[in-house]
């Protein structure tokens, strides 16, 4: 067991350049041949936020203070999770040609997709920053914990991504199920509405079983209330992330030698 772990770690060291190259490739190709290039990573979330602010302050009104900030914080976290896991899900089946022809540790592909989405999220923080300035958010020292929140989300996404990637290899149906699941997940996460408008039973469910609620609430506590997030929320966030990572890794390692028979 332990020698096997050491071999795996050595393998990871050897293929770290590949991880870097794959992440760089994703980022380079995303905006290649577009006029504004990387600027889109900032413009895109801003534009979506502006549209949603217009919709929700004219058509459906919620009593939320500083709504643009409320919205963009939730939206940034949710987009990270949905994009990262969705792309991770296709990371094995999408690289079938390569996996059949050369030996590469397979999880590298999944890891690279989640990592390149983390980098994109750092760009999106630029958009958040602009909104903060425009909406007079007070900058304070607790904001230094924001990368910590992103770390929780990242670990969570790696685990979920590994699980989805291996499941998709054996059952392509997972793709379609997960697409529907993501829609439900979006509405069950208080991104554009206050959680208090839900019935108490549902609030309890979301607080306990939707890790995104924890991540988004941590971010909003810092930004909107200027307080350090509740330590129980942080603990819960990390715990869920590590459980996700363990389950995902276990499922992936258990079945990875079979991938080549099904891709």
């Amino acid at each position: 067991m332990i020698p096997k772990m050491i071999t795996r770690l050595e393998d990871f060291r050897r293929y770290r350049p590949l991880l870097r190259q794959l992440v760089a490739k994703d980022i380079k190709l995303k905006y290649r041949r577009s006029f504004l290039g990387y600027l889109w990573s900032i413009l895109n979330p801003l534009m979506i936020m502006i549209i949603m602010v217009l919709v929700f302050s004219n058509m459906f009104r919620f009593d939320i203070e500083n709504f643009p900030v409320y919205l963009i914080t939730g939206q940034t976290i949710f987009n990270f999770v949905s994009e990262a896991t969705n792309q991770a899900m296709f990371s094995i089946t999408g690289n079938a040609a390569l996996l059949k022809k050369t030996y590469v540790p397979k999880y590298i592909f999944t890891l690279s997709k989640v990592t390149s989405n983390l980098v994109n999220t750092f760009f999106a923080l630029g958009a958040m920053l602009i909104v903060f300035v425009v909406c007079h958010v007070r900058f304070q020292v607790y904001m230094l914990f924001i990368p910590g929140i992103l770390l929780e989300v990242y670990i969570f996404c790696v685990g979920l991504g590994l699980f989805l990637a291996q499941a998709t290899v054996f059952f392509r149906d997972v793709q379609h199920i997960y697409a529907a699941f993501l829609t439900a997940w979006m509405y069950l996460t208080p991104i554009f509405y206050p959680i208090t408008m839900l019935p108490p039973g549902l609030i309890w469910m979301i607080e306990h079983f939707n890790p995104l609620y924890s991540y988004i609430t941590q971010l909003r506590t810092i930004v909107l209330e200027g307080l350090f997030p509740d330590s129980r929320l942080i603990l819960y966030g990390f715990a869920v992330a590590f459980v996700s990572l363990m389950v995902g890794t276990w499922a992936f390692v258990r079945s990875q030698d079979q991938f080549i028979l099904y891709v």
């Binding site: 870097r20 190259q21 794959l22 490739k25 040609a97 390569l98 022809k101």
Partner: peptide, 27 residues
Amino acid sequence: ELGAGFDGELTARENIYLNGAVLGYDE
């Protein structure tokens, strides 16, 4: 299969580094 790790969208210059990494060599 030569060039199994090539990505059609990337240039040859970028692909040399990518393909090298597929074979386990750093930048």
